[in-house]
Structures are given as C-alpha cells and as structure tokens.
C-alpha cells in the first residue's frame, strides 16, 4: 500500500468517522415569545403556537422577543428572558437518536425528549401585562 493511498484513507476516516459515530452536540432553536390576551399582532411564524396554546389561553398578541440557534451539549447554554429570568438548557443524553434536554427556568425544572419538527413550550413568567414563553424546537 503506497504512502499516498494510506494518507487518503486516513483522511477519509478522519473526515467521515466523526460524522458517523460521534454523539455530537444537538442543535436547538430557542425563541423567547411575548404573549398577551390583549388585541395585537401575531407574528406569522407563531400562528402554530397560537393554535397550540389556544386550547387553554386565547393569546391575541404573539411577538418574538429573541431567537437563537443553540448547540447544546453537557455543558449547556443559557437564554436570557426580558423579565430578568434566565433559562438554562443542557443536553442530558442522546440515545437511539433521541436527545433529552433539561430546561431550568425558575421556578420550573423539566426534562423532555426532542422530536422531529415538534416544539416544546415553557411558560417563563409574567411580563408587561402578558406572559413570556420559551419555545424550543428543531432549527430550520
């Protein structure tokens, strides 16, 4: 086996092996949404959220206050809310292609498993006469 061939095989292994076998960080879209029952505008991207929460509360105003794509691992990441609270997100585990996240948004502490194209909504407390929501979903 020539040196060149060996180098090329090593390169291929180094490039593709991590993709195939590593439990890399999990990408999560973290949006902070302000919701209010007073009449207002609903962000077009939040219509699904309005329908989902509509079973309990008819929000008439939904505004995205922040949006970020996080890369979560065991070290975690934080998301600041405009009401002074801070959400802590960590990757608890990754088994059979399903990641489990732990979300601490005082006073709530929850763990949940991610699902393809599904969202997790966590109420983040009152703010400016409405509610803040932390919405975690699969990045687009």
């Amino acid at each position: 086996m020539t040196t060149l061939l060996r180098r090329q095989l090593l390169f291929a292994v180094l490039v593709f092996a991590p993709l195939a076998f590593a439990d890399g960080p999990v990408a999560v879209q973290a949006d902070v949404v302000f919701a209010s029952t007073t009449a207002g505008k609903v962000d077009p991207s939040l219509v699904k959220m309005q329908e989902t929460l509509g079973a309990k509360v008819k929000y008439l105003t939904l505004e995205k206050r922040s949006s970020q794509k996080l890369s979560l691992d065991a070290k975690g990441a934080t998301v600041a809310l405009p009401n002074g609270k801070s959400a802590s997100l960590t990757l608890e585990g990754l088994k059979d292609g399903v990641a489990t996240l732990r979300v601490k948004l005082p006073p709530t502490d929850a763990t949940y498993s991610l699902a393809k194209e599904k969202s997790f909504y966590l109420q983040g407390g009152p703010h400016e006469g409405g509610d803040l929501w932390l919405v975690l979903s699969q990045p687009k």
Binding site: G24, A115, K118, F120, Q138
Partner: peptide, 10 residues
C-alpha cells in the same frame, strides 16, 4: 431527522 430529533412526539 437531525441528530437528537429521532422521536415522533415531544
């Protein structure tokens, strides 16, 4: 599904 999103439901 992307890494970590293998489930069908949250």
């Amino acid at each position: 599904a992307p890494e970590g999103y293998g489930a069908g439901r949250v």
